[in-house]
Design a protein around this nucleic acid. Sequence first.
DNA 1: CTGAAAGCGCTTACAG
DNA 2: CTGAAAGCGCTTACAG
Lengths: 342, 342
Amino acid sequence: MGKEITIYDIASQLQLSPATVSRALNNHPAINEKTKVLINAKAEELGYRSNKFASNLRKQKTNTIGVIVPRLNSYIMSTVIAGMEKVANDEGFNLIISQSLESQRKEIANTKTMFNSRVDGLLVSVAFDTDSFEHFQPFLKKKIPLIFFDRIFENSDCPNIVIDNAKGGYEATKHLIEQGFKNIIHITGNLKRNVYSDRLKGYQQALSEFEIPFKSDNVWVTALSLEAGKEVAHRIKALPIKPDALFVSSDLCAVSCIATLKELNITVPNDIAVVGFNNDPVSQVISPKLTTIHYPAKEMGEMAVKSMINHLKGNFNLDATNTITLRSELIVRESSLFLTHS
Amino acid sequence: MGKEITIYDIASQLQLSPATVSRALNNHPAINEKTKVLINAKAEELGYRSNKFASNLRKQKTNTIGVIVPRLNSYIMSTVIAGMEKVANDEGFNLIISQSLESQRKEIANTKTMFNSRVDGLLVSVAFDTDSFEHFQPFLKKKIPLIFFDRIFENSDCPNIVIDNAKGGYEATKHLIEQGFKNIIHITGNLKRNVYSDRLKGYQQALSEFEIPFKSDNVWVTALSLEAGKEVAHRIKALPIKPDALFVSSDLCAVSCIATLKELNITVPNDIAVVGFNNDPVSQVISPKLTTIHYPAKEMGEMAVKSMINHLKGNFNLDATNTITLRSELIVRESSLFLTHS
DNA sequence: CTGAAAGCGCTTACAG
DNA sequence: CTGAAAGCGCTTACAG
């Protein structure tokens, strides 16, 4: 009970050296198969559990991957984390997770903690306002692999895991145009971030393809929050010439906007069509159901951890594949369909 | 760059022993204040970072708290985790998080991993179908503190952190009754779990207080998922005598049900009033807005980690305070208001 | 207030 | 295929 079993206990009971026990437990090829069986049986019998701290200390590795996200409690991020946890657990890696709460200041503090925790690798989705790369430099200097996902730091030379945000923005906008909508407002987040700037590019591309002039007044930068959705609705209500469609870079914000528009007697899609982004469950439980871009959050989390572990194990070099792009897709529901357009 | 600074480097540069450096860095009272200042300055200068693995190995502690939740990507749980992360980070503890995906089998596997990771303490919210305590016994045997939160294991003698679910159920039901609704169906989850059985008790208590007979046919056990919400709506549609209200133990399920009811030409609250549970953001972005019970998820996460750390530090004994109950409250919105009842 | 020394439990280069 | 020995970087009981 009180006493912990070590490889020395196994060794002495089996009349072997601790070195052999250690090798057998780690499935070292030089050890006789029969000896391995013996040792593993004894380990099982005694309830041995390996001491990670001794092992990590000796090996100078931590088997730990750090994760920094803007926030833990958004649909996308909690789903990404769920995917990460699954893979990490299966591979015997630990995750240290922290949230920047959308502030570069907190993100810097988080990177310091991660650095001091000696993570073997770091996975980051950057905050809204991050515009310096400096806090990531210590990792590169120490050759600790750094991978960005979702919200990447552009021109960083670090590997990135993303979806094709431009394509997502393009498809969302094109769909609206094909439904007959021409005056489309794009509600987005801080354009410093690739996810938003790329979707904007897609939006512009679609407009230009259909020869609809782009107006910068039609791009509204918001916090993409629940509150932002309400504000957008009120702003639209006050507009002399109303848009006929909205492309919103977040489902939750889109849905909140739709609810508020309804309160203001503007109905969706009849008065204004709406397309969201993410395929958050919320998009299915409102009426009208929200057309959106499916975001493979779980897959992204899995891919991020898998790539990191492969790199750490030397299975493949991350630098070679600088960007991994996951598939996203348009899901058409009622909120964007042309009905009885007035 | 390559070389890591240790206390030996600091010691030799300062002509001191590693023992003194170690003590100074840990703010040991026996060390001269001036020496401490000197040592800390040198540590800073050299970019020293403590090696947790050596320290943990020596101290036989891990500074790690294990967390097992049913799933990471639900509003409640991701918010609980966000609260946990905040406190753990501030206190220098690490979290190892894993998800049981509502299966006892996976939960058992998770407890094994946690045990082998030698967590200093374990925080658990149990799966839907967990009915054995056996997989937690190894922790008690080794005197590793175990705290349950949200979904607790009843009669376990372990400390619990919960809300007053019976009170929540009571208030939700009482509110509906006071609005004039009498035929109230309760949609809930697996009644093995305290969160659901207690809410049911509250529901029954409110009915009995108003002398409305309880009918077990009015309690529907579901997965409380998005899909479950749809099924409930269809089942109601098929009912010869329809209920006038629904008390649903999850906002997401409630909202999905409302959306489907609407498709079936049953409107909320006019035809059927609805009260949810959790105060998920989704409750605010639909129309009508959902009346619900606010669940202090972030606070629960913070409290769980705080209690665990205090216990580990010996600040107070957990066994003394067997149950910590956090405040929840009814939030009245449109979905439950008596309008033009037909 | 400071130091010498042992030991936490592993892994691995070296030797045979 | 197996072993002896050193060492990873700390902490702490003991001594002074």
